[in-house]
Amino acid sequence: MCIAMPAEVLEIKEGNIGVVDFGDLQQEVRLDLVDVKVGEFVLVHVGFAIQRLSREEGLETREVFRQVYAAMEE
């Protein structure tokens, strides 16, 4: 349940919606819980950005989260 994935904010749309990049997937997420700018990284959980991350942190952890996430979906 508490799976969360780092993603880069590509675009911010009206109504607190952001287009984010998970590395191999782009998706719209809700930005209600964070104040972010384009180019920053966020941690995404159940379709919401739940925390802001530094760019370096985001890139560093993204791959591993993806592996764990893939394993959970098996």
């Binding site: 349940m1 508490c2 209600d32 959980h45 159940v46 379709g47 919401f48 739940i50």
Partner: peptide, 30 residues
């Protein structure tokens, strides 16, 4: 997530939509 459940309610005003909301503090703010 819950935002998608709310979208269903908006799209289908004739239905009563209930989201079964589980989760710890990671999820509750959403």
């Amino acid at each position: 997530g819950i935002h998608k459940a709310a979208e269903i309610a908006r799209r289908e005003p004739d239905r009563e939509v209930v989201f079964i909301s589980v989760g710890f503090e990671t999820t509750a703010p959403t």
